[in-house]
C-alpha cells in the first residue's frame, strides 16, 4: 500500500504543479482505526496528506457532484465505474477529470475485524496478505481476504475501467466468484418469509439516510423522501415508511449500482441494504446482459428500448 501512496502523491503533485488540475480528491489518514477521510488537495505542497490503504472504501465519485473545477480524482475499480455512470448520465464531463486509477485488492470491513477480536481495536495495519490488529492487551493477525467487505470479496472489476494514469500494474481479477448466492437465497423464500426477512433486516434503521447519501447515484436535487409538495412517504419510524424508503431507493439504483458497498459501509447500525441493490444488479445482468459503469459507449437498459427486451411478465 505504501507504493500506492507514494505514487498517488507523486502524480497529485505533478498534476497540481503543472496546472493540469485545480484540485485532487483522495483520502487522508483517519482519526480512528480503519477509517480514512475523503479530502482534497489544491497545493502541490500538501500532497503528503494523501494516503492509500484498505480503508478507502468511501466512493469518491460522490464528491464530483456539481463541481466546476478541473479535478484529479483517485479512483479504485468501483469508483471508476461510478465515474463512468456519471459521464453516461451527463453529470460530469470526461474532460473535467484526470482519473488516478488504483488497481484495488479490496477494502477492509471494519465490522468483520471488530467481530474477530475481543475488545476495542486501537491500531490496525496491513500488508498484502494479512491485517494486524492491536488492542488493549491483545494482538491478532487476520487473513486479509477473510476480512474484506463482502462486495469486495465478490468483486470482478478491481481494476479501474477508465483512468488517465494507474498508480500500479493492474491486479489479477478474481475468477469463479459466485456473486449472487445471497440474492438467490432470498429469491427462494415465499412472500411471507421475504416480508419477515426484510422486517428483521430493517428493524434497526434510524433513517439517517447515510446509505443514500454515501451513494454516488443518489444525486436528485430533492430525494423523494424529502419532497413535501406532495409528500410521498411518511417521515416517522413507521416500519412501512422505513421499508418504502429502502425499496424505492434501491429501485432508483437499478442498472446503475456498481456494488461499491458505500451504502452498507456507511450504515451506523450495520444494515446490509446491498441485498436490495444486488437483486437489481442480478436482474439487469440476467435480463439485459448489463453491468453498470463498464463503458461510456452504451446506454443503460433502463433508458433504452430494444425489441428483444424480455417481456414475459406481460400477460
Amino acid at each position: 500500500m505504501l507504493e500506492y501512496t507514494d505514487k498517488i502523491r507523486e502524480i497529485a503533485a505533478r498534476l497540481l504543479k503543472e496546472g493540469t488540475v485545480e484540485m485532487v480528491i483522495g483520502f487522508r489518514k483517519g482519526t480512528v482505526p480503519m477509517m480514512n477521510e475523503p479530502c482534497f488537495v489544491t497545493d502541490a505542497g500538501d500532497v503528503d496528506r494523501l494516503i492509500w490503504d484498505g480503508n478507502c472504501g468511501v466512493n469518491l465519485a460522490n464528491y464530483l457532484m456539481d463541481r466546476k473545477e478541473k479535478i484529479g480524482i483517485v479512483a479504485k475499480g468501483c469508483d471508476a465505474r461510478n465515474i463512468v455512470t456519471h459521464i453516461v448520465e451527463n453529470k460530469i464531463d470526461r474532460d473535467q477529470l484526470f482519473i488516478i486509477g488504483v488497481p484495488c485488492t479490496g477494502m477492509i470491513d471494519r465490522r468483520k475485524v471488530a467481530a474477530a477480536v475481543d475488545g476495542e481495536i486501537l491500531e490496525v495495519s496491513e500488508d498484502g496478505h494479512n491485517v494486524s490488529v492491536r488492542g488493549q492487551g491483545f494482538e491478532k493477525v487476520l487473513n486479509r481476504q477473510e476480512v474484506l467487505q463482502q462486495n469486495c470479496s465478490l468483486c470482478i472489476h478491481r481494476n479501474p475501467v477508465i483512468s488517465d494514469e494507474l498508480v500500479a500494474e493492474e491486479v489479477p481479477e478474481q475468477q469463479g466468484v459466485d456473486r449472487y448466492a445471497d440474492v438467490r437465497r432470498i429469491e427462494a423464500m415465499d412472500p411471507e418469509e421475504k416480508w419477515n426477512f426484510f422486517d428483521d433486516l430493517l428493524s434497526e434503521c434510524i433513517r439517517c439516510y447515510a446509505c443514500r447519501n454515501a451513494c454516488p447515484l443518489c444525486y436528485c436535487p430533492t430525494c423523494f423522501v424529502d419532497e413535501s409538495r406532495p409528500q410521498w412517504v411518511g417521515k416517522s419510524q413507521d416500519p412501512i415508511d422505513v421499508r418504502t424508503f429502502h425499496f424505492l431507493r434501491a429501485y432508483h439504483c437499478a442498472g446503475r449500482c456498481t456494488d461499491c458497498g458505500a451504502c452498507e459501509r456507511a450504515c451506523p447500525v450495520g444494515i446490509n441494504m446491498r441485498v436490495f441493490t444486488k437483486k437489481l444488479e442480478k436482474d439487469c445482468l440476467e435480463k439485459f446482459g448489463w453491468e453498470a459503469g463498464l463503458t461510456t459507449d452504451a446506454r443503460p437498459p433502463l433508458d433504452t428500448f430494444r425489441p428483444d427486451d424480455p417481456d414475459d411478465f406481460i400477460k
Partner: peptide, 26 residues
Amino acid sequence: EEVSFACINCGTCTYLCPTCWCFDIQ
C-alpha cells in the same frame, strides 16, 4: 470548507448524539 468537504450530510452524528434535540412536526 475543508472540514465539511467529506461530509455526506447524513444524520448519523445527530441521531447517535445523546445531546441533539431537534425535531420536525408532521
